[in-house]
């Protein structure tokens, strides 16, 4: 046990990043699950990552706006493509998404072939570095997510196919850089799975799972001295199972 790490100024920025991701990914995740395109986020997140790495190889600074534009453009291209394949060949959509994921991952490895920090970059993309987040980094993400939520809850009729795919690409491009592919997937899918049978309040249960999962995960990571991102994936799963069980029992 390590109590000194239990410090709000250490865990605060990471928790706030988690709250931002939770705010947008809970409603998006329920939609992804309802549409049955679970691996869409893994593929799009990986493509956004590929875009980030490509922008890096062009020698742009990690925080530069060009990098963000490239990352979002590649993610948007991939969702446009997937939107098209969903209409063209709906029965093989999952297979196409899976193939895109593998191509994007392998593409990142090829782009990083001559980079001595390749391993770090690839791992950073997957498990993220939520603890290295600082408040300044969160400001643009908070503004972006505010706009996404406004669009989502303000114009529910536009949640149909194409606008959904584009909002999704935008949200994931930002969240992947904050918390990594694994946490993005876990935040989208685990809470949505737990409350899939809920008619009402599914959204609030989902938010509850997200907030408690991130909070508990960060506290455990601090106490047990473990990498934070991976611990949060597990606490999200644990809370999702508990709440899912509770919600289903209450219904019977």
């Amino acid at each position: 046990m390590n109590w000194t790490a239990l410090d709000l100024t250490i865990l605060g920025p990471a928790f706030l990043a988690g709250l931002l991701v939770v705010a947008t990914h809970i409603p998006l995740g329920q939609r992804v699950l309802a549409r049955g395109i679970i691996f869409l986020d893994l593929a799009v997140a990986q493509v956004a990552g590929l875009g980030l790495i490509a922008a890096h190889s062009l020698d742009w600074e990690p925080g530069a706006w060009q990098v963000q534009v490239v990352a979002f453009a590649t993610a948007a291209l991939s969702v446009l493509f997937l939107h098209w394949t969903e209409r063209r060949w709906p029965q093989i959509q999952e297979a196409v998404i899976g193939s895109l994921f593998v191509l994007a991952s392998s593409g990142s490895i090829l782009l990083l072939a001559s980079n001595p920090h390749a391993g770090e970059h690839l791992k950073g993309l997957l498990i993220g570095q939520i603890l290295w987040v600082n408040y300044m980094q969160l400001v643009p993400v908070a503004i972006l997510y505010g706009l996404i939520l406004l669009q989502w809850f303000g114009f529910p009729q536009r949640r149909s196919s194409l606008p959904f795919y584009l909002l999704f690409a935008l949200a994931i491009t930002a969240s992947v850089q904050l918390v990594g592919v694994y946490l993005v997937f876990a935040t989208l899918i685990l809470p949505a799975l737990a409350v899939r049978h809920c008619k009402q309040r599914a959204l609030w249960y989902g938010y509850g799972i997200g907030v408690v999962g991130y909070g508990l995960g960060l506290i455990l990571a601090a106490l047990l001295d473990l990498p934070a991102g991976a611990v949060i994936v597990y606490t999200l799963a644990l809370i999702a199972i508990l709440i899912g069980w509770f919600v289903n029992r209450a219904k019977d």
Partner: peptide, 15 residues
């Protein structure tokens, strides 16, 4: 050359 980010590392540098 590489390291995993753990909360305790930040706390230890802080103290």
């Amino acid at each position: 050359h590489h390291i995993e980010a753990r909360p305790s590392l930040i706390a230890r540098v802080r103290n």
